[in-house]
Amino acid sequence: MIPSADTILQLIVQALLLGSIYVLMAVGLNVIYGVVKAINWAHGAFVMLGAYAAYWLYELYGISPYASAVFSAIALAAIGAFTHELLMKPFFGMRYFRAITLVVTYGLAILLINITRYMWTDVLRGVNLGVPPATIGAISISRPFLYGGLVAIALSILFYLMLKRTQIGRAARAVSESRKHAMLVGINPNVMSRFMVISGAAMAGVTGSLISTIFAVTPEMGSVLGIKAITIVILGGLGSYAGALIGGLMIGFAEASGTYFLGARYQPLLYFLTLLIVLSIKPTGIAGEE
């Protein structure tokens, strides 16, 4: 079956928009990894909490998820601060730091997901904005997708500029290169790592708000998105901004086209296989160094 040009265009646009949201999620995870060198397994759980925040604010007070994204970001920033102080900082300098933090944040993910499940059960929820799809030429895109993708693109670019152009961004990159040498030039690495974990978590909150309008909000999304986020950053290469971009878009394409070409049943295989193939060729991901 050869799809028509319009179908292909439609798939590409959808993949780009979905991919952009994944990029935002992956950038949040990578930002934490870059400075702290810890993979935050609970990132998906953070996204899930952001989505729940958006859902409840919409359901109870009618606040649009795009407005309440600010609230999600603040709430998750607080959780990020706790995570940094209690679950990452005590292990700094330990020999098996990466393994320890991976396991500890895995525990945190289980904890958060099941607390959510305990409080709000497994019921499928979601924000239904009830807006008609936007039609551009021959393609029609659902508006939550369109807005979510655009917000995600804007935020990713803003964050990139902050990393590259501002003093804070330069300091963060310096700590990422070497904590010791960053200290020599007067940067407090603990302050920087706290700041970056908080911003990473806040980005997860915003991602959650955007996703609440697209996918069903359930506790399970915490573990699914957690695996997805880690898959993306590992696919692209840990700690690399370009890696998050490549990985996020690849997964976006794999998902959008996988459903179309392989059907919903085998669709999860496509990005898992992509990951395994990439890693067996280049064990540190596409743009990863080490």
Partner: peptide
Amino acid sequence: ILLRIKGPYFAISSLVMAEILKVIAIN
């Protein structure tokens, strides 16, 4: 395949492998 991949890369790859097998078992 998997044991060439180190550290956190291995951790997630093994999980992904298990999920692939699960999808195959379902289908």
